[in-house]
Design a protein around this nucleic acid. Sequence first.
DNA 1: AAGTTTACCTTATAATATCAGGTATTTTCT
DNA 2: AGAAAATACCTGATATTATAAGGTAAACTT
Lengths: 144, 144
Amino acid sequence: MLDQVDQSILRHLVENARMSIKEIAQQVGLSSPSISDRIRRLEERGIIRGYTLDIDPKALGFPLQAIVHIRPLPGKLHAVQQLIEELAAFGECDKVTGDDCYFARLYIRSIEELDTILNKIVEKAETRTSIVKSQPVLRRPPPF
Amino acid sequence: MLDQVDQSILRHLVENARMSIKEIAQQVGLSSPSISDRIRRLEERGIIRGYTLDIDPKALGFPLQAIVHIRPLPGKLHAVQQLIEELAAFGECDKVTGDDCYFARLYIRSIEELDTILNKIVEKAETRTSIVKSQPVLRRPPPF
DNA sequence: AAGTTTACCTTATAATATCAGGTATTTTCT
DNA sequence: AGAAAATACCTGATATTATAAGGTAAACTT
């Protein structure tokens, strides 16, 4: 499915999505046009979904993160999901099997702010919150 | 802290980290060297941590994801964390307050594979697993 | 009020990407 | 089996983009 060259290209781009095609070409031992072609094909195949920034929340004034388990009250499921999508403090949300419908990541400026944000959904859902103490594994792609 | 121009630059790069400096310059109405300078400063300030790929796990053969809550058995905390870091199927892991020490994201090829992977930590920790049904909010940066 | 810093500009040069055209190898079809 | 087509690569020319150098105006500092 992915040959060695494609894997190498992906690895380089995961490391640094702005690496020049020329440099990738040199690293993997092919010409620039070949690398361009392969990247285009990886995009067309939907393997590369896009190129994005890794922004440090701390540097933006959000030194804390919390993981919130959210169980919407009867009839409130849709409203709760919409709130999560709209509140920019939610940096990630998965809808999962089980009683706790949603697991969401919250960027917060302080412990006090946690309350401010959760108050916005407290009438529509039960929540359980855990504060992130460290991140042993930062977002990384699946193995290939 | 971040003026309008910096914010606009970040927004463009979050959208497409490979966008050319020239195009960003045109969009925000400054010259290329000015944009280069500002990006360099955003990097130096640690706001831009890096540029990375958004890879679609489905396209790589991982149609399923699970969120696993992991509570290491007494004395096993360190061993468990090391396992999570080493197993590439774990795409993300937060160490949090509360009894469930770790919340981790697992990329899986099939439901059967879930068992295979969890067997590797079953002697060292209690786990509770939820299957991801949808992702209402994909990873996004904190508000700015 | 003079000096310094900052954030920008323009222009020239250097680096990079893309395009066009060609070749060898493998796959597909008759 | 052999012809045709497709694939994956190459090189070299051209177009695009990035960077470096040098300069200006405004704002802050002493």
